[in-house]
């Protein structure tokens, strides 16, 4: 089995974890899903933590 940094390390901060699992991955919409359809609502508790983030507009512009 490959070594897996994430699996064995507790050093990964919860920030790193939440930054990934709440913002990314397969995000579903539509009537087949009860919860993720309203992700913004579901994550009210952490919305304060993860919202109000400013984006690097200039960098994004320079990306393409």
């Amino acid at each position: 089995m490959n070594e897996n940094v994430i699996d064995r390390s507790r050093d990964i901060t919860i920030l790193e974890v939440l930054d990934r699992v709440l913002n990314k991955g397969v995000i579903l919409t539509g009537d087949i899903v009860i919860s993720v359809a309203d992700v913004d609502l579901i994550y009210l508790g952490v919305k304060l933590m993860l919202s109000s983030v400013e984006t690097m507009e200039k960098l994004k512009a320079g990306k393409h």
Partner: peptide
């Protein structure tokens, strides 16, 4: 959240995965 990522990380040790967002639930 840690459990979510640890489970996916474990599968990823063996094969490619498409991770789902935390809290993806089907009826």
């Amino acid at each position: 959240a840690r459990e979510h990522i640890n489970v996916i990380g474990m599968i990823m040790g063996y094969t490619s995965v498409i991770p789902f967002k935390f809290g993806t639930i089907f009826n």
